[in-house]
């Protein structure tokens, strides 16, 4: 009863100090997601992009995350160990402020899926192709808080009642309860 529920978090650990800027991750990612698989490659379709600025010695592989319709109101800069990074260098969003993470033909957003496929790969392809170990893969368990907050149910029922009236909600609930 007391066992903590957990979920598996797939993690690609990115060691930017080890990145040699080769973009093999972009090549293999776009090939892996081509249809049929590996039939073409095109870094513009990749779900991982290396933010590269050689003369600033900046090499950051960053993965495609959620789509966002609007760019940030402000964009900050971080100075880390003497190097200046644009905030976007660490951001996963497929966003209007940059060309990354959008299908070049349709403009539809792209998102990293950790190379989920059948049969399952031992590691995402970008990790397999990164021989310098800038990208490594690990799975970790994270506790899940699955206790149901009574307030959450209340909010839902109240919304239904506001729309249909309490009588209707109660009738429906008793009818549905009988089915179980």
């Amino acid at each position: 009863m007391n066992a903590v529920k957990t979920k598996k978090i797939k993690t690609i650990k990115i060691d930017v100090d080890k990145c040699n800027g080769c973009r093999a991750c972009e090549v293999i990612c776009s090939a892996m997601h081509a249809e049929p698989r590996y039939s073409s490659n095109n870094p513009a379709r990749s779900r991982v992009r290396v933010i590269r600025d050689p003369l600033a010695d900046i090499y950051i592989p960053v993965y495609a995350g959620e789509y966002t319709a609007a760019e940030c109101t402000g964009r900050d800069r971080y100075v880390i160990d003497g190097k200046v990074y644009d905030e976007c260098a660490f951001c996963r969003a497929s966003c209007p402020s940059r060309g990354f993470f959008k299908e070049p033909d349709s403009g539809l957003p792209l998102k990293c899926d950790m190379c989920e496929s059948d049969p399952t790969l031992k590691e995402p392809m970008c990790v397999q192709w990164c021989l310098t170990d800038a990208l490594t893969y690990e799975e970790r368990e994270e506790p899940v808080d699955d206790a149901i907050e009574p307030e959450d149910v209340d909010v839902g029922l109240e919304a239904l009642a506001n729309k249909y009236g309490w009588q209707q909600v109660v009738d429906s609930m008793s009818r549905l309860a009988k089915k179980d």
């Binding site: 040699n20 800027g21 093999a24 090549v27 050689p54 003369l55 010695d57 021989l131």
Partner: peptide, 28 residues
């Protein structure tokens, strides 16, 4: 030498960033 570098899609690291009078990179 601030970093070992590769060409496109190659795991070998034959190149390097070289910093002249800076800590970052002047040329490769």
């Amino acid at each position: 030498r601030t970093r070992l570098l590769s060409c496109h899609n190659c795991p070998m690291k034959c190149g390097a960033s070289i910093a002249v009078d800076t800590r970052i990179c002047s040329y490769m």
